[in-house]
């Protein structure tokens, strides 16, 4: 792992309306240009962790945060989300609320316009993201006429116009159908492959996570309880299941075989399963 892009130390966080800490002593380091997938049952604190890293909690969502968060050298506790302009971009679950204008171009231009960048620079950034994500066909469409997956794609593109170095994805496919989810996940893979962004994604699609993630962190009850490469995490099938995460199908099958006395390696990716099972 290269130098850290995101460092979280002993992080405690809670909302103004919550009675106890939602995050309880989270420690995390994410290398520059790498991808971490956060997994865990709903309510375990994945979104809260992302909001804290993005400086939204407590700066937008009232609450309390204790501990240290440094993103690309910026002390988030001190700067809040305003200090992370051009550093962090975040995409949320609900595609409907992330498209708030009446044209795709306006949507893409909104963030750099709000930053007060010169007109030419805003246009340059929009043109760049349109080319990078092949969005030409959407430019003349009313965002309201787009599918959920397409809206989510536009939301990701809108964030990229701020040229963030860190991209946070808060379950971006949880409200999408299969087709929409594929569109979004392929875009995320492309961003990782071609643009070298540091990505932290809360995502429940485990088969996808093991294919693209450099690291996986499993959260339970406000803490990171497992962390490592996809192989390291998902080869411990029993532990993963105990924390409410479904292991990849290949690992589940291999683990069942081992329980029945077969000596097989536990694969986490589909292609490894083909090797292990001699398919």
């Amino acid at each position: 792992m290269g130098p850290s892009s995101v460092v979280v130390k002993d992080l405690y966080a809670r909302y103004a309306v919550s009675e106890s800490w939602v995050l309880k002593g989270v420690n995390l380091a994410v290398g520059r240009g790498s991808m971490l997938v956060l997994m865990g049952p709903s309510g375990c604190g994945k979104s809260t962790l992302l909001y804290a890293i993005a400086g939204l909690l407590p700066w937008v969502v009232p609450g309390e945060v204790k501990g240290e968060i440094v993103v690309e050298g910026v002390d988030v506790a001190r700067s809040g989300y305003r200090g992370l302009a051009g550093v962090v971009g975040i995409v949320y679950q609900n595609p409907e609320m992330q498209v708030v204008t009446r044209s795709v171009y306006e949507e893409l231009a909104m963030a750099p316009e709000n930053l007060g960048l010169p007109k030419e620079e805003v246009m340059r950034r929009v043109e760049w993201v349109v080319e990078a994500l092949d969005l030409e066909r959407y430019l003349n469409r009313d965002p309201q006429s787009l599918s959920g997956g397409e809206k989510q794609l536009i939301a990701i593109a809108s964030v990229l116009t701020m040229r963030p170095r860190v991209l946070l994805l808060d379950e971006p496919t949880s409200m999408l159908d299969h087709k929409g989810a594929r569109l979004v996940l392929e875009t995320v893979e492309q961003l990782k492959r071609e643009h070298g962004l540091t990505i932290i994604a809360a995502e429940h699609r485990v088969e996808w996570a093991v294919e693209v993630a450099d690291r996986v962190a499993v959260m339970s009850d406000g803490a990171i309880v497992m962390e490592g490469s996809p192989e390291e995490v998902f080869s411990r099938v029993e532990d993963v299941e105990r924390y409410g995460v479904r292991p990849p199908g290949a690992a589940e099958v291999a683990y069942e075989l081992r329980r029945r006395g077969f000596e097989v390696r536990v694969p986490v990716r589909l292609r490894e399963a083909f090797e292990v099972f001699g398919l």
């Binding site: 909001y51 937008v60 316009e113 007060g116 960048l117 007109k119 929009v126 809108s158």
Partner: peptide, 17 residues
């Protein structure tokens, strides 16, 4: 609110492309 914050609404004097 979070979308507006992460799009930096009200951050600076807005540019109109």
């Amino acid at each position: 609110s979070m979308v507006l914050a992460s799009r930096y609404a009200g951050y600076a004097r807005r540019t109109y492309v």
